[in-house]
């Protein structure tokens, strides 16, 4: 479950205006939500709060049952390992192979190499990338890179998966393929939130939506 209660977010410590204002909503465990809104509406900031890359300036954020205001900094890494993130720009590490990029969250979590090989192999097959395991990201197409990023995000079987414009840099075919994988994660019980501009994709896959405008949540449902 994800719960925002009267959340405000301001970057920096000065008198800068809030980029998020009075945001309140609840996402039940296992739900799928679109996050919609124009550029600059605050979608990425909202997702940043969800995957603990940011902390709210005010209000309460609760992620996977953990209220952030009561969590020590040292407890955050454990919670982050239960959250998968897919970025528009993929953020693959260029010096690592596809296999090692996907294996990264497991190595961070200290998983044994034997278990890691089996799980990463399964993820690569799931995303149709098993033949590319030894390739470096620079040799892959945009769609392939985004599937690697998706495999990396879900290899730890996260309870919450957030995707920030995951299809923004992809053509229609690749975008549908990535979206199908996200929907499959939802079917497996993961809470999924996908920020997008692609109204066409949203129309093809109807689901509840959060709609942001100028830092405020203007519609939920």
């Amino acid at each position: 479950m994800v719960r925002f209660d009267d959340v405000g977010l301001r970057y920096g410590s000065g008198p800068a205006p809030e980029v998020l204002r009075d945001v309140s909503f609840v996402l039940p465990q296992g739900s799928f939500h679109w996050l919609l809104g124009p550029s600059g509406a605050g979608k990425s900031s909202l997702l940043g709060l969800m995957h603990l890359a940011l902390r709210p300036s005010r209000g309460e954020v609760e992620v996977l049952g953990q209220p952030l205001s009561r969590l020590r900094r040292g407890a955050l890494p454990g919670l982050r390992r239960r959250i998968g993130v897919v970025y528009q720009d993929f953020r693959l590490l260029p010096h690592l192979t596809v296999f090692d990029n996907v294996a990264l969250p497991m190595r961070i979590a200290g998983r044994a190499e034997a278990q890691l090989r089996a799980d990463v192999g399964e993820m690569l097959r799931w995303t149709g990338l098993d033949a590319k395991a030894g390739a470096l990201p620079a040799t892959l197409s945009g769609g392939e890179q985004q599937r690697v990023a998706l495999a990396r995000a879900v290899v730890m079987r996260p309870a919450l998966l957030v995707a920030d414009e995951p299809t923004g840099n992809l053509d229609g075919v690749q975008a549908r393929r990535v979206l199908a994988l996200l929907r499959e994660m939802h079917r497996l019980g993961t809470t999924v939130v996908v920020a997008t501009h692609a109204e066409g994709l949203v129309a093809e896959h109807p689901a509840p939506a959060l709609r942001m405008e100028e830092g405020r949540l203007v519609a939920h449902g």
Binding site: H95, L96, T97, V98, F99, D100, R117, A133
Partner: peptide, 16 residues
């Protein structure tokens, strides 16, 4: 199926 055998020479140096 056997897990793929891949080059992982830098897997332990993710920060490069």
């Amino acid at each position: 199926a056997r897990p793929p055998r891949v080059r992982r020479s830098r897997g332990r140096d993710p920060l490069g």
